[in-house]
């Protein structure tokens, strides 16, 4: 084939690709909706197969069981000292029974269908889309706690940005001291910044959503403080938070499609 023909093919291909780009932008975009509806079943099967393949062996389970027993005894002592809120929250999260705590909460549980290799911050696609009432910016939770926010949505699926993503900001508060701050991703870590100069945050404190922005319900578990650091540029302190829900190992999660204070901002 001549070089001229090749150039024509390149031009035609590029025009097609650009048109596909146009049809893939925005909420409920035609191309991702159609494609994800077409391939959703394949990914459901492959995700199940991958889960079955990565299931631990008997020996590994026994080893893990012994380790967990040792951990359990230590944790029991710690749990006794924790505030009643976490105890209640944890139990409720375990069973996805948040409605008992917050009757206005509307949850849409879904399986993780895809994890794009392009996403540096462990973002994933959930098998719940606008057909189920999911919208951009809805909070996404697992039984362990908040995992992220819906970034894009089509008819059958949505893409979730995790707490590690720099583009995501969450108003949070320390459950023990009530110190507030803004949580966002920085170099692959979840960082709580904009702390008051006289804050009393300590390592191990439980961090919860503040619920002031109207995007996330209040008092969702976000994680625990792993480390306190000082910014070398402005001298301000910030807390590195270990997310309660590990985004890399999420298999299913729930989208909070509604709660009573949604869209209500409290200064």
């Amino acid at each position: 084939m001549s070089r001229r023909n090749n150039r024509k093919i390149l031009l035609l291909t590029l025009i097609t690709v650009v048109l596909m780009g146009v049809f893939s932008v925005g909420e409920n975009a035609l191309l991702p909706s159609g494609w994800n509806a077409l391939t959703g079943g394949v990914f459901r099967l492959s995700a199940d197969a991958a889960a079955a393949l990565s299931a631990p062996s008997y020996g590994e389970l026994q080893e893990e069981n012994e380790r967990l027993r040792a951990e359990n005894s230590v944790l029991r002592e710690q749990v006794a000292d924790m505030d009643a809120l976490r105890d209640e929250n944890q139990t409720l999260w375990e069973y996805f029974d948040l409605k008992k705590l917050e009757p206005s909460l509307e949850l849409k549980p879904a399986f993780v269908l895809q994890q794009s290799a392009l996403d540096d911050f462990d973002g994933f696609a959930l098998g719940a889309g606008s057909a189920l009432g999911v919208k951009v910016n809805d909070a996404v939770v697992t039984p362990e706690g908040l995992v992220g926010r819906v970034a894009t949505v089509d008819r059958v699926s949505c893409r979730v940005k995790t707490l590690l993503s720099p583009g995501l900001k969450v108003a949070v508060t320390d459950s023990r001291t009530q110190d507030s701050g803004i949580l966002g991703g920085r170099d692959g870590e979840a960082v709580m910044s904009r702390l008051a100069e006289d804050h009393h945050i300590a390592v191990g404190d439980l961090i919860l959503t503040a619920g002031t922005g109207g995007v996330y319900p209040a008092r969702l578990i976000v994680g625990t403080v792993r480390e306190l650091r000082t910014d070398p540029y402005d001298g301000a302190q910030y807390a590195v938070v270990e997310p309660a829900a590990d985004p890399e190992s999420v298999r299913e999660a729930a989208v909070i499609i509604g709660f009573s204070a949604k869209g209500v901002t409290n200064p």
Partner: peptide, 11 residues
């Protein structure tokens, strides 16, 4: 498409 919408990688 796996990351959301057609863009840099496609072109």
């Amino acid at each position: 498409l796996a990351d959301g919408s057609v863009g840099v990688y496609a072109v």
